[in-house]
Design a protein around this nucleic acid. Structure first.
Ligand code: AMP
Ligand code: AMP
Ligand code: ZN
Ligand code: ZN
Lengths: 221, 221
DNA sequence: TATTCCGATAGTGAC
DNA sequence: GTCACTATCGGAATGAG
């Protein structure tokens, strides 16, 4: 009966104060944490605390429209928080941020302040069509996939194919092919760069090297 | 432009006396040797010595009916010789041979002596649809595929699929699919036990373990 | 052809 | 499609004078 790692996320929900380094915030309905094995340079998880819902498959849990709406709202908040963190991390490298900073530093500053980079766009929120961890969790993750912990094809394709289902796509229509992800073989697909579309076939290490280069350019936008 | 290993069989033909351990016999037209990397417990090669023919692809060389006939005759001789060797190797394990031996030892011996095992049936003669070694050679090989040198799928499938073309199938008809072996993907096929037909998919090591068991039973027939 | 190197793939066990 | 460990599988390069 197995207590194995697949149930480890439950501990954050039951006992968030035991993980001060990992828990970003908590409230009555959610706990937000840092993913322990991040698949991008920033990777957070939103964990609903409802005892019933948290043991359901996300597709099942999100059939409850009211619950789905609460999750979307909370994920939106966490996404903004994550965007702020991206700004702190990469703002100094970003061309768009430099333009804004230059305007701020100008004497006198211009009437219209450039907006700076929209980091929210660089973060995706969603679930895996077949989660491996048993407790309901929503990924809030930067698009870069620049991480040493991203170690194989399934790691990558679980975020880079329709296997990753964005929160905004819920509720799924009844004919959506993502209801039957195994048939679709999403995780077996060729490895394709999320940024330039280059196809790396089965060559994970080559993709990873390439993603390192893409990361260097992406943070500088 | 190369002198590489693919030409190594030529040395046996040009200079058979240099390989006394490997050469089984020689005459004006052929040299018979032991395969240096045997893919069965007994694996011989018949090498035609004709300077022109020996540099041709077997399908091309065998278009010459007279030559083909000579090869068939010589291969038949070598096959019988190999059968004798199999009898020496496994006769003591063979049930059919034991019956014959018991009859021989009886007092008085019966009028009809049991034939003993037909070892010729356990030896196949033929060529690979796409040989890797450049000098013409005909495999004379026991069916067992019990050998440490059989190390990967292509080794096995080159003898266990239509990639192996028995001598008796020549001349090939013009519509024979073996004229175009690449298209057929013979070497990529699932691994299937020659004896019981069990399918091992891509699991070469599991097949090999199984072949060890089959060998133990096969020699006892 | 064989050998070697490296990387991709597949199965397992985890309390 | 948890991670971590192992064994196996698979392609690519090599080679010679
Ligand atoms: N103990 C853990 N603490 C935090 N995150 C984890 C832990 N174990 C696994 N994860 C993450 O949980 C996520 C599960 O993803 P999935 O079940 O495929 O939707 C992965 O991103 C893992 O990196
Ligand atoms: N130097 C060698 N001496 C004897 N046999 C060899 C040598 N090199 C390779 N072989 C065998 O030659 C055969 C070539 O098979 P193929 O070219 O695929 O028909 C294989 O069975 C090898 O084991
Ligand atoms: Zn790219
Ligand atoms: Zn079998």
């Amino acid at each position: 009966m197995g207590s194995n790692r697949r149930d480890d996320l439950g501990a954050y929900v039951r006992n968030p104060e035991s993980f001060p380094k990992d828990v970003i915030y908590q409230n009555e309905e959610f706990v937000a944490i840092r993913d322990k094995f991040p698949k991008s340079s920033l990777h957070l998880l939103l964990l609903p605390r409802d005892r019933i819902k948290m043991r359901k498959h996300p597709f099942e849990a999100f059939k409850d429209a009211e619950f789905l709406e609460k999750v979307k709202v909370e994920a939106g908040k966490l996404q903004k928080l994550a965007a702020s963190e991206l700004r702190r991390m990469y703002g100094k490298d970003s061309a768009q941020e430099k333009v804004r900073q230059a305007a701020l530093d100008a004497h006198p500053p211009p009437d219209e302040l450039p907006a700076g980079r929209d980091w929210v766009k660089e973060i995706k929120c969603g679930v895996h069509a077949v989660p491996s961890m048993n407790d309901l969790h929503i990924h809030v993750i930067a698009v870069d996939h620049y991480s040493e912990r991203m170690k194989h094809r399934k790691h990558y394709n679980s975020f880079a194919t329709p296997f990753f289902v964005p929160l905004e796509d819920f509720p799924l229509k009844s004919d959506d092919s993502r209801w039957h992800p195994e048939r679709e073989g999403y995780l077996r697909r060729d490895l394709v760069c999320w940024r330039c579309g280059r196809n790396f076939g089965n060559s994970f290490e080559k993709l990873k090297t390439h993603l390192w280069k893409e990361f260097g350019e992406w943070k500088k936008i």
